[in-house]
Amino acid sequence: MQTADKYIDLIYDYKGQWDSPSRCGLKVYQRSDGHFVIVVTELYTGNPGTSVTQWCAPLATTLIGEYGIEPEQLIFIERTPDTGSKLVFLRETFDRVSFTWDGIKYTSPEWQRLSREEVDKLLSE
């Protein structure tokens, strides 16, 4: 499984549902406008625990705390990497995730599919 590429700076360990040890690829990028783009990559068989999709809201909450990001500064992107499969549902995808901030944590994730070009654009701004 490919893990090191332009959308991953490091492998990040987190506690998923029921405190399951979980792991994702992580890229944190600060744009010139002050926003932070965080790309979390699902590692599939490299992730022993909860998927980034299932855990996106707690994961995003944890990450802004660790990186000192204000809730409104976050642009959160979920990525599933290309697995080399011929099946369409195992190809690379990007989704921008919007959350509601309740004052303590993110809730109510909603996903919007992005192209790779749109992600590149978000990272280059």
């Binding site: 699902e42 599939y44 998927s51 999709t53 299932q54 979920e78 549902f89 989704d95 996903w111 599919r113």
Partner: peptide, 14 residues
């Protein structure tokens, strides 16, 4: 079913 990639994909895509 929950905890599958199918669930994650379908959930993301509404």
């Amino acid at each position: 079913f929950p905890h599958t990639k199918a669930w994650d994909d379908m959930k993301k895509q509404g």
